[in-house]
């Protein structure tokens, strides 16, 4: 390994080699502080707080606003002119084909009295149509519609949250292997973190066990298997599910 004539140098070179490594190690240990907590916090703040604002606000406002003025203002001037009216009326309500046939008879009759009647009928129909649209909107997008009335009242929020907590509990209960938990009424408490998509953002943490490890594990597995969990679409309610403490008894009860 070491030549005869290198022996005098070996000790000094060895010491220097060790010094180099010690220096390198010190630089590595003290120069890098690999903690990844702070950037993740920033990302989460953006995720939760930016979403709720724009979604409920624009939806309810534009729909009632533009539709009513159109039938009230526009139909009145053009009774003698048959052509432009259907065009104008069609524009605000493109999805409804019923509008066209109902409005065609009206411009054909230029007489004032039946025209007024028909206009009132028309208004009524339009209002019905609006209601239908609103109901359709509610059916297709339940969240914003519900969010608008439920937003300000905290009592309604609590009810909604309870509803979804119950649904979460039901879904988990369906996945628990009840044989592992025996006959009694064990009660467990889990802390689970749910993303807006209903997925678990991290592993569930058991706060209180049933005393039976097999049962604890069964419930833990059931929580994972229930992913995605049901969550409300209303973004303002998410804060309740981000860190949910869930009391749970596998054999029924609350």
């Amino acid at each position: 390994m070491i030549r005869q004539r290198e022996q005098a140098l070996a000790a000094r070179a060895g010491a220097m080699a060790i010094a180099v490594h010690a220096l390198l190690l010190l630089v590595l240990v003290f120069s890098f502080n690999w903690k990844n907590v702070q950037p993740m916090n920033v990302a989460q703040v953006e995720l939760w707080d930016s979403l709720p604002e724009p979604v409920p606000a624009p939806k309810p406002l534009p729909e009632p606003a533009p539709v009513p003025p159109v039938p009230e203002v526009k139909p009145e001037p053009p009774p003698p002119v048959p052509e432009p009216e259907p065009e104008i009326v069609i524009k605000p309500e493109p999805p409804k084909p019923e509008v066209k046939p109902k409005e065609k008879p009206k411009p054909e009759k230029p007489k004032p009295d039946p025209a007024v009647k028909q206009r009132e009928e028309e208004k009524r129909k339009l209002e019905e149509l609006q209601k239908m649209f609103a109901e359709e909107d509610r059916a297709t997008q339940p969240a914003p519609a519900k969010a608008a009335p439920a937003g300000p009242t905290s009592a309604a929020n609590a009810g909604e949250v309870d509803k979804y907590v119950a649904r979460i509990r039901e879904k988990i209960r369906g996945n628990v292997n009840k044989q592992l938990c025996g006959e009694g009424q064990p009660e467990l408490e889990f802390q689970i973190a749910i993303l807006p998509t209903g997925q678990l953002s991290r592993d569930p943490v058991m706060l209180k066990g049933s005393g039976n490890p097999a049962c604890d594990q069964a419930v833990d597995r059931a929580i994972r298997a229930s992913d995605p969990l049901p969550v409300p679409n209303d973004p303002t309610l998410f804060s309740n599910f981000r860190n949910l403490k869930l009391k749970f008894s596998p054999n029924g009860g609350s």
Binding site: V29, F32, N33, W34, K35, N36, V37, M40, N41, Q44, A193, S201, R202, R242, N243
Partner: peptide
């Protein structure tokens, strides 16, 4: 939410 990751 984050695991306490000490990545020294």
């Amino acid at each position: 939410i984050q695991p306490a990751a000490d990545m020294s």
